[in-house]
Write a protein that binds this DNA or RNA. Structure first.
Lengths: 344, 344
DNA sequence: GGCATCACCGGTAACGTTTGCGTAGATTTT
DNA sequence: AAAATCTACGCAAACGTTACCGGTGATGCC
């Protein structure tokens, strides 16, 4: 009981036409009479004809598939992004193929090649924590593969970018901490070379600059694998807290870090915010009902995904090669709760 | 600067061979000498040749693409499932195309047709809340589209199924509540006809039966859209709590319901567990650090996704048509915390 | 009435890969 | 030594669709 779909030649044969005519009738060509068009359309409907997309893809050398590379799918931020990408892409007649890097360069290379070999029309990517050098991307880009970067971007490839305002989000959060009188506000970020880490660090530094409170260098730490592994966070936090003068507040710079730091503090009975005030980037649900309610910087993930997909489609469907690439920056949302409030 | 991938004929021309020989060399055919094979492989590597999957797909009428339909991507349970599916599929050389039903029949029909028109080799699906009648699926199935059901399954189509033990999970949770002396244990489920709702309801009823405590019919309610819309949960909870004899404990039967019920209780200042004990199905992170710590029934989502993908691939790659379909049931994990503990 | 201009449609060659069949030459068999 | 069997490869036809280049009548024009 194998599925034998009806093809264009079947219709042609049944109607005494040529396949070329049927094809043109379908695409509503002006070279076909209304009468013939109607005949074709009616018959096609009656036999439930669907053009074979694979054959079409082979013909016009495009797949209407968008590749997406993220660190991990099972992450509230990225799953919301993917939701946005899928929604926009679907509406435009594209579908979405997902690959994960798990923050590893090797897996990112694999993912990108994998998508390329699947002949996606373009790749939407948020760089992995290990992707300092991106030859694997530039190679493909030079060969004509279109990219759109979101979240973790790079300037090494000139193309569309969509981020949230990491600088401002981090600065706002840091100012919030400083202005309450916290004196040792620490920073825990992902890999140092990632755009989000740099921008958020700059925001953190700018806030200190504005308040004339130079931050102690020991208060700034990074997690090479972005806190994907719990032990990373564990180590960093131990170093922070066992220092002679430990921090009294902390800015966490990614979903995973925020989650794991929160977990660490609770496990180690580090009182938030009494012993350590906490605010972090997070798109997790229910953070307001954690104990203590967690202050977060939330990014417009769905909208970022939507925008990224639309940018890519614009790039793909541009009649002429684009070279004026837009960098869109969306405002994050700073939600202050008890975890970052100084208790008197 | 258009991407011009090297094709098999290029290699053939460069090496003075025919395209057939090159193709066979690649597939490691015994008809080709080792010497020629090596020559071909070496040259192919040097020019970074990748077979064009679209052409291959057209040739052997398969796409090595798996379609996935879930209610929503941005949901911890489903995103973990997708993680599992993607990981297993990737390892087996398949890729994954995702579509969302948003719990709507119309969107599910759209999604399925969309995937079919994308010529996926098979569809992994968790039914939408509105999918009581599934003609749209049986139609396609009759035409030869393979299915694997996960999470929300149906017996209307005879094929592989992978679920978690909903009956036992719900029963365990209900017993836990009953045995602590809660006397009015309520049940809030998604659409009544969904398999997960039925099975969980049966577990709930079985627990009552085992303790000889017939549950009040007013203590059982359903949310047609599975709590995807907050107002649904709001309405159901209002009805529960404004009754003459409101429940003193509640079993929530999906991620979304659990989350929204928790939110509702906190907003309405319904004390958990003093006024209403709560336990629910959830795969959310950090539930242990909510206030109060939330008792949950956690499903092995990643493993479910992995299994579903492997089942599908087994189905697709079976040398002869299968008709002995496996139904795998994985054990859920019941984690008891303060939200469901009776305070004396 | 001859010629250009249409409207409408068909034949055919692609797109890149795989595969059945054919066939040289080399090797083995009787 | 002739016949049979292999080995190793090439030719060409598919897979389903679309684009290019035509061609056929019919109509319009001077």
């Amino acid at each position: 009981m194998k599925f034998e779909p009806v093809k264009i030649t079947d219709i042609a044969k049944a109607l005494g036409l040529s396949s070329a005519t049927v094809s043109r009738a379908f695409r509503d060509s002006h070279e076909i009479s209304e009468k013939t068009k109607k005949k074709v359309m009616d018959y096609a409907r009656s036999v439930n004809y669907r053009p074979n997309p694979v054959a079409q893809n082979l013909k016009d050398k495009r797949s209407r598939a968008l590749g997406v590379v993220v660190a991990e799918i099972a992450n509230s931020f990225y799953s919301q992004i993917i939701d946005g990408i899928e929604s926009a892409a679907h509406a435009k007649g594209y579908h979405v193929i997902i690959a994960q890097s798990h923050e590893l360069l090797e897996k990112e290379i694999d993912a990108v090649n994998y998508l390329a070999s699947r002949s996606v029309d373009g790749i939407l990517i948020s760089l992995s924590g290990e992707s300092e050098h991106i030859d694997h991307l530039t190679n493909l880009h030079d060969k004509g593969m279109p990219y759109v970067f979101f979240d973790r971007v790079t300037d090494q490839i000139d193309t569309f970018q969509i981020t949230s305002d990491n600088f401002s989000g981090a600065k706002q959060a840091t100012l919030h901490l400083l202005d309450q009188g916290f004196e040792r506000v620490a920073f825990l970020g992902g890999t140092a070379h990632l755009s989000i880490t740099r921008e958020r660090l700059n925001g953190y530094l700018a806030a200190h600059g504005e308040r004339n409170t130079g931050p102690d260098k020991n208060l700034i730490r990074f997690c090479p694998v972005g806190g994907l592994q719990y032990y990373e966070v564990e180590t960093a936090m131990q170093q922070f807290m066992s220092a002679p003068t430990p921090p009294d507040a902390l800015l966490a710079c990614s979903d995973k870090l925020t989650t794991n730091i929160f977990r660490y503090c609770r496990e180690q009975r580090i009182a938030i915010p009494q012993q350590l005030a906490l605010i972090g980037f997070s798109n997790l649900d229910l953070t307001e009902y954690l104990e203590p309610p967690l202050s977060i910087i939330r990014q417009p993930a769905f909208e970022m995904g939507e925008t990224a997909a639309l940018m890519m489609i614009r790039l793909l469907e541009a009649p002429y090669p684009l070279n004026d690439f837009e960098s869109k920056v969306l405002p994050p949302d700073c939600v202050l709760r008890r975890s970052s409030i100084r208790l008197v």
